[in-house]
Design a protein around this nucleic acid. Structure first.
Length: 570
RNA sequence: CGGGCUGUGGCGCAGUUUGGCAGCGCACCUGCUUUGGGAGCAGGGGGUCGCCGGUUCGAAUCCGGCCAGCCCGACCA
C-alpha cells in the first residue's frame, strides 16, 4: 500500500469524548469512527486489524475441529419463545415485527439457531460436532462505554459443541480452554482463566478469560502464591479468625439514638467495631421479604445470591416493606427473634458470639448476640465480596483483586437448549438422548480494544506483529530526491515479495509528520530511507516497542526486517 | 433508570454570564520558500451554532420541550 493513496485519517488531537486508551487511539489513528453510542464503523486500518484477529481465531478453532458456518442476524421470535428467552431477556434484546406482524429479534447470541440446526442430527454416530461462526450480535446495552470495550453492535466468534454425554462435553470444553489460551497468547495478551458466574446462560460451569486492565469492568481475585483465580462474582476466600470475648447472658438491648450505619455505630461504642457487628440487609426474593446477614465490615456480592438461590427475581426491599415486615427502619435491623422470614447468612458469621446487631426497634441495637444460639438455622450461603488481602481459599496466602477485561467466556450449557428445542440423537441401544451442549464466545472488537489497552505508550498504539495493520512502514524522508525514492521503493517491493505486510509512506509530508503518524498507528517496524543514509549506503530500522534503531546496509534491509518479523509473528 | 457535564466548520475550542456582523488553532485549497521529529509567509474555501417551539425590533446567547453524546452509579449473557 502506498500511504499517499490510503485512507488513514489520523487526528492531531485526542477526540474530546474519549477516555479509554483504546477509544482515544483507535479514533485518533484513523481505525474507527463512531456512528452512534456503541456502534462503530471500521475504517481500512481497523478492518485490517480485525481481519488478522479473526484469522487467528479461525485457525485455532479449526485446529480443534471447528466447522465454520454463518447464521442469520434476524431471528424469528418463535424459536426464542420455545427456549423461554423471548420473555426472560428484557431490555437488551431488540424485538420488532415484520410487515406480516411476525415477531422478530436481532440476534444477541445464537444458541437457539445453532440448536435448531442440531435438531437435524439423528444418530450418536454423528457426534461430536463443533460448529462456529463469526457474526454480528446486537445488544441494546443500557450504557455502552469505553470505546470498543462495551458496544451494542459487535462481531462475536461463537462456537457450539454437541455431544452425547457430559463426558463428551467435558472434552470439548477442555479443548476450548486450550484453544482460547492459544488465541489470546497469539493476540499478544496475558489472559487469565477464572471461574465465573454463568449468568442467564444457564449451565453448571463457566470460565472467563480476563486481561488485566484499568479500563476493564470486572474484578477478579487472584492468588499470587497458588494461582487461584476467580471472578469476584464467584470468588471465595477465608477470613482471619476473630476471638470473641465471652458474654454469658441473653442479648441486651441498648439505646443508639440517631445511629443508622455500621460506621457510626462502631464509632459510638467500643464493643461495636465493624467486624463485631452483624449487617442485616432486607431483600425481596421471589416476592418474599428475606434477611441477608453479613459481618459488619463485609460487602454483599449480589450475583452470589442470584446464583445460589437460582432466581433473578430479587431486589433490595423498600423502606415501607421493611417497616411492615420488621417494625423498624433500615439502620436498626436484625435477625434475632425474627420468625417467619427467610434468613440467609454468610459463613463468616458462623460460630461468632458477643456480636452487635439491630433490635428491630428504631434507635435500638442488641449486644451479646451469639449467632448459633440467637439466630437459629439460617441458610448458610457465601454472600461476601472478597477483598484484597483476604486469605486465599486454597492456600491461605493474601489474594489480590484486579480490574480486568473479559475477552472470552466458555460455558457448559448442558441440555437446556437441546431439550427445549428437541435436539436428540439415537444412542447405541436405540433410545433418544438429549444432546449435551457447550457455547464459547470471543468478542472480536473487544479483543482489539483489549490489545490496545495492553499495548500503548504516550506516542500511540504498539501493535504486536500478529495483529498490526501493517508489519512495517518504509518511510521516505525526502520525496523529491530520486535516489531516496528509488531505494525506498526497492526495499518496499522486496518486503512485499517476501510476504511482508508493508506500506510505503510516500506522502509529500515532512519527516516529523510521517514519524508521528507511524508511531500513532503503531506499526511494529519502520524502515527510514533518507538522502544521508543513501549516500552512506544504509537505511535505519526502528522498532516501535522501544524506539531502538539499527543501521542496516541497504542490501540487507529486506532480509533483516523479514527475519525479525518472522520471529514475532506468533 | 438516577446523578453530573456537553452539543458552535472535518478535529480541538472561544463566544452564552450582560441578546446586536459567527470567531480562533489544527486540518483543507492556491502560490512561493522550506525538508531527518507534527515548517514559514501570502492568499482562499467551508458552519441549518443538535432539533422544535416561544419571548424580542433582533437569539449561538433568554425561556420551554425534545434529541444526541460523555463521565459516575445502577444494570450487563
Amino acid at each position: 500500500m502506498r500511504w499517499s493513496r490510503a485512507y488513514i485519517p489520523t487526528l492531531r488531537d485526542d477526540p474530546a469524548d474519549a477516555e479509554a486508551a483504546n477509544h482515544r487511539l483507535l479514533v485518533r489513528g484513523g481505525f474507527v469512527r463512531r456512528l452512534m453510542a456503541g456502534s462503530w464503523s471500521l475504517l481500512p486500518l481497523g478492518k485490517r486489524v480485525v481481519d488478522k484477529v479473526e484469522k487467528i481465531i479461525r485457525e485455532e478453532m479449526n485446529r480443534i475441529g471447528g466447522q465454520e458456518m454463518l447464521l442469520p442476524v434476524v431471528h424469528p421470535g418463535e424459536v426464542w419463545k420455545q427456549t423461554g428467552r423471548w420473555d426472560d431477556v428484557e431490555g437488551i434484546l431488540v424485538k420488532f415485527k415484520d410487515r406480516r406482524e411476525t415477531d422478530l429479534l436481532l440476534a444477541m447470541t445464537h444458541e437457539e439457531i445453532f440448536t435448531l440446526l442440531a435438531t437435524e442430527l439423528a444418530s450418536y454416530r454423528q457426534l461430536p460436532q463443533l460448529w462456529y461462526h463469526l457474526q454480528t450480535k446486537f445488544r441494546d446495552e443500557p450504557r455502552p462505554k469505553g470505546g470498543l470495550l462495551r458496544v451494542r453492535e459487535f462481531t462475536m466468534k461463537d462456537s457450539y459443541s454437541f455431544d452425547l454425554s457430559p463426558a463428551g462435553l467435558d472434552v470439548q470444553f477442555e479443548a476450548h480452554r486450550q484453544a482460547y489460551a492459544e488465541i489470546f497468547r497469539r493476540l499478544g495478551m496475558k489472559a487469565i482463566p477464572v471461574h465465573a458466574s454463568s449468568g442467564t446462560m444457564g449451565g453448571k460451569e463457566s470460565v472467563e478469560f480476563m486481561v488485566e486492565s484499568s479500563a476493564g469492568e470486572d474484578d477478579i481475585v487472584v492468588c499470587p502464591a497458588c494461582g487461584y483465580a476467580a471472578n469476584t462474582e464467584r470468588a471465595t476466600s477465608g477470613v482471619a479468625p476473630i476471638a470473641d470475648d465471652p458474654w454469658p447472658d441473653e442479648p441486651e438491648p441498648f439505646a443508639t439514638p440517631g445511629i443508622r450505619t455500621i460506621a457510626s455505630l462502631a464509632g459510638a461504642f467500643d464493643f461495636a467495631q465493624a467486624d463485631r457487628q452483624i449487617k442485616t440487609l432486607a431483600y425481596v426474593v421471589g416476592g418474599e421479604l428475606t434477611l441477608l446477614l453479613l459481618r459488619g465490615d463485609h460487602e454483599l456480592m449480589e450475583q452470589k445470591l442470584v446464583d445460589a438461590l437460582g432466581t433473578f427475581d430479587l431486589r433490595p426491599a423498600q423502606d415501607d416493606e421493611i417497616v411492615a415486615g420488621l417494625g423498624a427502619h433500615p439502620g436498626s435491623l436484625g435477625a434475632v427473634g425474627v420468625s417467619g422470614l427467610r434468613v440467609v447468612a454468610d459463613p463468616a458469621l458462623q460460630g461468632r458470639s458477643n456480636m452487635v446487631t439491630g433490635a428491630n426497634r428504631d434507635d435500638q441495637h442488641l449486644r451479646g448476640v451469639d449467632v448459633s444460639r440467637d439466630i437459629p438455622a439460617p441458610e448458610w450461603i457465601d454472600l461476601r465480596l472478597v477483598r484484597p488481602g483476604d486469605p486465599c481459599v486454597q492456600c491461605g496466602q493474601p489474594v489480590e483483586v484486579k480490574r480486568s477485561i473479559e475477552v472470552g467466556h466458555i460455558f457448559k450449557l448442558g441440555t437446556k437448549y437441546a431439550a427445549a428445542l428437541g435436539a436428540t440423537v439415537t444412542d447405541e441401544v436405540g433410545e433418544d438422548q438429549t444432546i449435551w451442549m457447550g457455547s464459547y464466545g470471543i468478542g472480536v472488537g473487544r479483543n482489539v480494544a483489549a490489545i490496545v489497552e495492553s499495548h500503548f505508550d504516550e506516542k500511540g498504539i504498539v501493535w504486536p506483529v500478529s495483529v498490526a495493520p501493517y508489519e512495517v512502514v518504509v518511510t521516505v524522508v525526502k520525496m523529491d530526491d530520486t535516489a531516496t525514492v528509488g531505494a525506498a521503493d526497492e526495499i518496499y517491493q522486496g518486503l512485499r515479495a517476501g510476504g511482508i505486510d508493508a506500506i510505503i509512506d510516500d506522502r509529500d509530508e515532512r519527516p516529523g509528520v510521517k514519524f508521528a503518524d507511524a508511531e500513532l498507528i503503531g506499526i511494529p517496524y519502520r524502515v527510514t530511507v533518507g538522502p544521508k543514509g543513501i549516500a552512506a549506503g544504509i537505511a535505519e530500522v526502528t522498532h516501535r516497542v522501544d524506539g531502538s534503531t539499527e543501521v542496516v546496509p541497504l542490501a540487507e534491509v529486506v532480509p533483516r526486517v523479514a527475519e525479525r518479523i518472522a520471529a514475532e509473528r506468533l
